[in-house]
Design a protein around this nucleic acid. Sequence first.
DNA 1: TCTGGGGTCCTAGGACCC
DNA 2: TCTGGGGTCCTAGGACCC
Length: 421
Amino acid sequence: MYALIDCNNFFVSCERLFNPSLNGVPVVVLSGNDGCVIARSNEAKALGIGMGQPAFELRELFEREKVAIYSSNHILYGDISRRVMSLLARFSPEVEVYSIDEAFLKLDGISMPDGAEVYGRIIADEVLRCVGIPVSVGIAPTKTLAKIASHRAKKIPRYKGVCYLATPDQRAIALMECPIDDVWGIGRRLAPKLLAEGVATAWDFTRLRCAYVRSKYTIGGERTWRELQGEVCYAADEVPDSRQSVTVSRTFGQAVSTFDEVYEAVANFTATAAERLRCEGLAAGSIMVFVKGRGCHPDRYVGALQRTLPVASDSTIELLQYARRILATLYRRGELYKKAGVILGHIIPREHVQLSLFDTVDRDKHHRLMQVMDNVNKKVGYKALRIGAERGQRSWQAQSNHLSPCYTTSFGDIMVVKAQE
DNA sequence: TCTGGGGTCCTAGGACCC
DNA sequence: TCTGGGGTCCTAGGACCC
């Protein structure tokens, strides 16, 4: 049995946590550059504001309806997420953190004297009481069914936030009431295909023949088909798979054109990516840099180039040398750039790095230097020490005009409580 | 004019091996 | 006229998730 704990309107709930005046009013959180809507309060959803809708289309509506607008504050959301997840660990030895706002709990073998539904309610109450974030809980024999259960918990008021699909009959009703495009694993491409063959609900999907599903929708489709019928295909990941890649990319606040400006951005992304590697004890065997031009024409200029490293590395300095060379190849004078990114691939644990007989890099020295840099930054402040190429005009930096304070992670941003006079 | 960022897995096809 | 069988590895592209 699995429980899916899903934070309601997570980013909005994080903003409300420290600003109760946002309760009961429409609130949205915007993506980087305040480009489009990535989280909405229920009031905002009721106004018809869509997920992913561009902010400029909504300007009038925002004004008219007095919608509270926030730029995304991922430092805050990440910290609140950690609090939720560590609290959940009290309720099951097997917690799989699935995303910033969701986790699966394995419930087998856990003593639940009053049953799974009551247990789910205790979890929801504790998260609200200790962290202040409202959650929905879905409980069912497979993850795919638990997803459906949590949807119902959120949408159907009589569940009051907790839905336990205990019996085959309850599951059948849930499947019949679940539109096919709400099923976990059925996305934008597959849903129209299924609708075209008369499959409108999760229930209809389970009525198809297994062999047919396999041949037309491949292994992923078959797993979803089985999971909907209570057969576990996606077990709990006791040990999360080691990561395959690290990406850092941004759309620029304004288009930039000189090599130095683009390189400054790429240097920052490379440094952030390398730091993430070191933090997880990993090294990258390849690096890719990509740039995107500005434009009405979507593929006005897109360039990407990958380089395999002679020896896998986690050194910002070394990775930066490759990044610069790649960018020099990609760069075109006179072009306007609107986005760039760095992808580190062929990731392995640092201690598995295969050294080269003909290596020219003093890896030991790099390693010690990076350690000092990371330690200083941990103590003194983020990016207190950095590579020279990272500093500059920052003309590429994103515009976030509605940023909330980092209430929980920055001393300067801690709230001040005033005594009443 | 203005539209995010970070991931994963699967498949088909080509190149290659014996 | 007739031309095997069984593999692996790599990559690009497509699908999905949040």
